[in-house]
Design a protein around this nucleic acid. Structure first.
Lengths: 174, 174
DNA sequence: TCGCCATAGTTGTCATGTCGACTAATTGCG
DNA sequence: CGCAATTAGTCGACATGACAACTATGGCGA
């Protein structure tokens, strides 16, 4: 489970509850990973069962108890191992390109619709990414911070590449 | 099932067996979709059950019978509907970026290793893509052909963007 | 006061993907 | 001659993901 590695990575930065993790996934991580709430909680359970994390129940005054999960040394070991292991080649899966591939029988106008919808999506993504990027601007001297920002820059670069591709296809489409 | 749509798209180009489909997926489609053999055969079964495809058994002299699957008018209808329907936003999932995000504690040299492995992968992809692109060069006047080539160009554009991103990260990494 | 929102987490079910083993005939290579 | 590869397809089991419903509590605004 790769999600287990990501969760360990986050727990390594700070102890967190499943609820916290979900929020981090939806904010800082959303540009390269999406995680289901139920999946996160189940992953935490397996991590505890495997000894890669421990739970500390923190009572709160007006809110439900926090089940704070802490990474263990064993957990840090598998995290490190994951980071340095051979990457398994990522299976391509691009639903939009699938549509484009089969859109040959459609009238030209409908193909252009398809492309314009994609453009709208890409433009929305680009503004989201650049906005976030602006808010993160300072402190690039430390490596960890530089790398997290670099993942955002990666998203920005790819989104721009997508827009440039759309430019040429919209122009040249016979 | 989105795989069902892709299979319908291919059956719409020509009647095929599951075996044929697998080969097409692994050659013409591999740059944007990966499909498991078992999954393809099961998808064909459901397509037949739903009335979107029919089977024609074609005996062969020296090889096992071919179970040629043909798209039906109903199948063509759902294919068309898919092509023109709202695209469902694609959940981001980039294992490599996940590693980069958490690689902050690693020594600089190991981060560079990670990046160089990625570069090797990207360069291999780029040559595969451009090779295929060379072999496909002529006949861009017809829209269907243009679009299938455009999906390849999309892969090339993104791979180049990835390499450019790697250039700057490898240079600037603190 | 009613209902919604935020906090925090659980459970169930279905869909989809993944991996590997298995059948079976034929062709080609060394 | 033997063995691997190609053609063609099937089956079972498990992993992963997705979606929704459900339990609780307390704060806040209309």
């Amino acid at each position: 489970m790769i999600l287990a590695r990501l969760v360990l990575g986050l727990l390594n930065l700070a102890p967190m509850t499943g609820y916290d993790l979900k929020k981090v996934f939806d904010s800082s991580i959303s540009h390269f990973w999406a995680a289901d709430k139920a999946q996160i909680y189940r992953t935490l359970n397996t991590l505890v069962a495997e000894g890669y994390a421990t739970v500390e129940v923190v009572p709160q005054a007006n809110y439900p108890d926090r089940q704070e999960h802490h990474i263990t040394p064993a957990g840090q070991a598998v995290l490190l191992e994951w980071l340095t292991s051979e990457p398994t080649p990522h299976a391509a899966r691009e639903p939009f390109l699938a549509r484009v591939f089969f859109a040959g029988n459609l009238p030209r106008a409908q193909v252009l619709d398809l492309l314009r919808e994609r453009r709208a999506e890409a433009e929305a993504m680009l503004t989201r990414f650049t906005d976030k990027r602006e808010s993160l601007r300072p402190a690039e001297a430390d490596r960890a911070r530089y790398l997290t920002i670099a993942t955002l820059d990666n998203g920005i670069a790819h989104t721009k590449a997508e827009l440039a591709w759309l430019d040429t296809v919209e122009q040249d489409l016979p």
